[in-house]
Structures are given as C-alpha cells and as structure tokens.
Design a protein around this nucleic acid. Structure first.
Lengths: 335, 335
DNA sequence: TCAAATTACGTAAACGTTTACGTAATTTAC
DNA sequence: GTAAATTACGTAAACGTTTACGTAATTTGA
C-alpha cells in the first residue's frame, strides 16, 4: 500500500490540512513548513490519491469517448486530437468501442456515468434518443464529434457534409469530367449519408451534368469492402464513367483496389476522389485526392469545448470546421 | 447532483448498509425489502458512484495503456483487443499517447498512478529503466505488449521476431528468389530492429544465399516514409534485387508506393513481403503478402494477463504468440 | 508596548461507498 | 412453549482527500 497524506503529515509534524494546502498551493503556510513537507513527500515518494480527490471535488479529470470502430483511421485521427487536448488540460480519456451496437452503447454510458467522468464525446456516432435521455438526466455534458443531432441541443463539431460533397463533385467537374458517378455510403444515414449524396447531386445539376439513377450506388457502410463492391456495381450500371466520388477514403481505396483487379487504370481511365483525408490517403497507389477534414483538429476542438463547459458552465456554440480539397494523384484532368 | 445511496435508503426506509448489500447481491436481506429497494432505485434512477467504490475497494476497474503513436494501425489493432478484454472484464481503458517521449511518458505514468488504475500495459514501447522503477515502486502490475524487457521481470506478450523474420525470408527463398534485400527498421532497436535483421540474415546464410552489406538498408523508424526511402536506397545499392522483406507493413506499403513511382512493377519485377498484417495490408495495391501477428488477440491476451494478476496475485508467464505467413498478391514465384 | 490585524496552522466534517460488529426479529428444534 | 440458531437488518468506522471554521502565533501600526 502506498503512503497517504496522513503519513506525510505525521512524519512532517503538521496536520493533514497543511499538507493538503501545500499540495494545492493555496497559501496559508510558511516557506519553512512548505519545504519541510515537500521534503517528506519526496522521501516517502508520496503520490496523492486522485480517487479520493475525485470523490470530494466531484471532478475526475477523465472524459469518455464513444466511437463505433477503433480500427477505422477516421476515429483514430479524431481520437488523436481528443487525447492531445485532454492531456493539455490535465485529463485522461477512456475509450469506448460501441460497434454501433445500441445495447453495448448503453452499457458503456452507464459505466461512464458510474465512473463520474466529467463529460462524454460521441465520435462519429448517431445520437439515439435513448442515449441522449440517459445522459441528459445526469446533466453530464456531452459533445458530438463528426456527427450532429437535429432533435437535441447538443453542441457538435463537424464539417458541412453537403458543402464538402458539393466541393468534391465540383472538383471533378472543374477537371473537365462530365460522366461522374458516386459510390455513396448508407443512404439512410442522416448525417454522413444523405448530405453527401445531396451535395453531390446539387453540384451535378447546378452544372447541367446529366444525373440519373445510374450515377449513384449505395452501400451499407463506409468501409473498404463497401468501396470494392461499390466500384464493381457502379461500373456495371455506368460503364463509361470517367470520374468517381467516394463518400469516404476507405471506400475510395476499396474502389482503387477493385479497379486494379479489373484492370481499370486510375487516374488514366477513371479518376477517383475520396472524403476524409485519412493518413491512408497518402499511402495509396496512386496517392488519393480527397476532400480533407481536419480530423485531429476537430477532435481537439471537441475536447476543448467540453472543458470550456466544465469551466464556465455555458453551452458553447457548435463548430463547422473547414473542409479542403487535397490534390494528389488520383484525379486527372480530362480534355 | 445525482442521488446517493442515502437517498435510496431514506426513501425505502432501510439503512444504507442494506441498500449496499442488495446492490452487491451479498445476501442478508429478505426478498420483500430487496424488491422494495430495487423499486426505489428504479424510480430515482440511482447510479452508484464508482469513485466512492474505488476509494474503499481499492480497485478502479480501469487500466492504462501507453503507446507511442495512435495513428499507427499497429497500435490501433492492439488497442482493439485490449479494449475488448477490458470490457469483458468490466473495466475501462485510459489511452496514453507518449510519442516515445520520455518526459511525456513519465508524466503519464504519474497520472495513471495517481488515478490508481489497476494496471498498466506498455504497448510497443521500450521499457526504460526510469519507467520500470517508477511503477515497480508502487507495485502496480504491468504488462509488456509487442515488446519485451531483458532487464526486468515484466511479463510480455509478443511474437518471436527472429523466427518471424526468418520465416518471411524463407518464404521468399521458397518462392525461388535468390537476390533478396531487406528494408529494415532502426538497427539500434533491441526489440523490433535487431531480431528481425538477424532472423533475415540467418535465413539467407542457412540457404546459401549471398549476403553482403548491399542486402540491407536501415531506417530511423518503421513508418511509411521510411519505406519509400528504403526502397529507393535499396534499389540504388542492389539494383537486381528481386524480392524484398520490409520490417513493417507500413514500410512495405511505402516501398510499394515508391516502386510505383519508379515504374517498378510489384510483384512482376520485385516481390515484397511485409510484417505485421495490419488492416492496411489487404487494402494495398497489390494486396500485401506479410507475416501476420495476431495483433488484436495479443492485445486481448495482454489485458487478460493483467486481470489474472489482479485476481490471483501471481505473475503469469510471458506469451510468445504464433506468427503466420499471410499470402496475398505482392510476392510472386520466380522460375 | 499593546491592541488590532494578519498569518499559520489544527480540528473535524464531508464526499459516497463497504463492511465488521451488534442486536432485534424470526425460524427451528424439541 | 421455550431455548437455540438463524436471518435481517442497523450503526458506525473506514477509505484518502478538501475545506469551513476556530485559534494560537506572529506581524503591524501607533
């Protein structure tokens, strides 16, 4: 067992209150006793017990992050930023891998609430009614990251998916393409599905590009296999497509892979633009042109918003982060 | 503020001891009071305070994981397994991103110790003397994951790097290659550097393949850019190489990328085998043949070892996990 | 030099649990 | 029906801190 504040107090011949005051730098003690106590702390190797502190201060300096899937780099990059901001604010982060499973999510929320974390970040997760009610009841602050809620007043940070998808399609158009397809994600996904599809459509119609049911294929998710299937389906439906917008980088890379297998050269025969700018995107062959989200920055911002709630008690404004076309090698000008 | 056990006790007309006993299913109460108390808990939406529990039970049901870099999929896959095992054991995991920075690591260790986590996993991190001493002093259990220590008796779980590298080289040899190069990582890295280099060398000499200083290039780390530089250097040194062993998948993918830029076709002109079997490996073009480590399983095992220490108090044996050649498309038979 | 103001402490309660110990109520055994 | 055994509780201390309040010691001001 480690030493407690009592051991320090006894050995330094002071009361525990004095030790506590010194530990927290609150004043009310002489320099002499301060150095005496500090010396004892050093000798004993005393480490304050954050659990006891948490009990009385009602702050655990821990936040919880819920996300659907760890091995997606989307989440990793977000988490990277969250962890950084947390660390800068003297807090730690508990990771909760929900697998987009409602039951598992509720179990995690329960856990986080019992652990009295200071706040919760939902990363790239749809905020179900059940989730919201459960944590709102405890008045524990929450932030939505790379997602948003239309039904509840929970602050979020994300890019504007509609605008970003529009920009992606427009980039293809600007490069001279007119036969443009989209490998979309889940068309029932209110956050990442529909707005990207609509942004894509709007760009095409705004520029008088023909748009029919053959232009878009849908998938169940936003993963690599969804991308390979997506490309195959799209080529079947729309054989003379010259440029493709994939709704995620993982899907784009899946499309690259499928194209390679089918002997379709990228970008010579068909151009591909992705969405996210994951670390992956610069490792692909060819390196992927994509619409970048500042993922780490977004994670950082989300965590900082949480800390600002904890300090001020005020709900911060949601943040729309800027997206940006990252030009690499997978899109080619078409004459 | 949320309700406490006292509120429940008062409303149910029992003592807090009874509520506690019911909560923990320890017996010593009638069915009637049990259901009465449970009903009050339900009505109030009472959530026990894990902080208070942790204080008295001296178990926080939280473990800490230290790793150098989040955005590497190596770590992500390990973390995935850790998180799973932790969840199965009713615990949560705090992530600590050290950037391989000694000061940052010490700060994190201090934090984890103050938070009284139940144990610590060093994932893919070299265990410095300073780290070991600091946590050993608190007798907090630790596990090494995908790394090991020669100096200290800390249980580890990893694959045998020497054997695995030998197997990788032998795979190339079995496929008929005789001009074989290696893009190695850091040659000063006692854990992931040297053993892989030595395993590679041994395979070559065992099979009477010429081996000189031109066969191996060294890098600073194990990253994607290290891989692209590695390939360029290797080709310069050893122009007629037909097969390459890269010391990590990220490096292998970097090599693929560089080869593509240089117009070298993989696997037609040169075969490439990687090391790790990251999720990445099946997304590359061509899909990467690699020596697989069961990363998620390893993470799970590490966490389970930690829990077993907590239950039994006994130090478990270290585990050498099996590696396996995963054949995909980046290695070609040579006649 | 002496009262007043300030500083430097110490005491004890509180945070929300668990649990050892004690006791009243109930059940069992005859 | 009564003593013994068992069951079902309640009381209070403990976990390791922080902090309101009180008081002795020191400093200040004239």
């Amino acid at each position: 067992m480690s030493y407690t504040i009592k051991d320090v107090a006894k050995k330094a011949n002071v009361s525990i209150a004095t030790v506590s005051r010194i530990l927290n730098g609150q004043g009310g003690y002489s320099e002499k006793t301060k150095s005496k106590v500090l010396k004892v702390i050093e000798e004993l190797g005393y480490q304050p017990n954050a659990v006891a502190r948490g009990l009385i201060n009602k702050r655990t300096h821990t936040i919880g992050v819920l996300f659907p899937k760890l091995s997606s780099s989307l989440v990793t990059d977000l988490l990277d930023g969250i962890e950084k901001a947390a660390n800068d604010n003297g807090s730690s982060v508990i990771v909760c891998h929900t697998e987009s499973n409602g039951e598992k999510t509720m179990k995690y929320l329960q856990l986080l609430i019992e652990k009295r974390v200071d706040g919760i970040i939902f990363a790239s997760e749809i905020l179900k009614d059940e989730y919201y009610q459960f944590v709102a009841k405890t008045s524990m602050p929450m932030i939505l990251l790379s997602t948003e809620s239309y039904a509840y007043p929970v602050p979020f940070v994300k890019v504007n998916d509609f605008h970003a998808a529009y920009a992606a399609a427009k980039h293809l158009i600007d490069k001279g393409h007119t036969r443009i397809g989209m490998i979309s994600g889940n068309k029932d996904d209110i956050i990442a599905g529909i707005p990207r599809i609509e942004g894509f459509k709007k760009a095409l119609t705004d520029h008088n590009i023909p748009l029919g049911s053959e232009n878009i294929v849908f998938s169940r998710g936003f993963t690599f296999p969804d991308g390979v299937d997506g490309l195959k389906n799209l080529i079947k439906l729309f054989p003379d497509v010259t440029a493709i917008f994939a709704a995620s980088d993982e899907m784009a890379i899946g499309a690259l892979s499928a194209a390679y297998q089918m002997g379709i050269r990228v970008p010579d025969e068909v151009s591909v633009i992705g969405y996210d700018n994951l670390n992956l995107a610069e490792m692909s062959i060819p390196p992927l042109t994509t619409v970048g989200q500042p993922l780490a920055k977004m994670g950082e911002t989300a965590a900082e918003m949480l800390f600002s709630i904890l300090e001020t008690g005020e709900t911060p404004e949601s943040r729309i982060m800027p997206h940006k076309i990252i030009e690499r090698m997978s899109v080619k000008e078409r004459k």
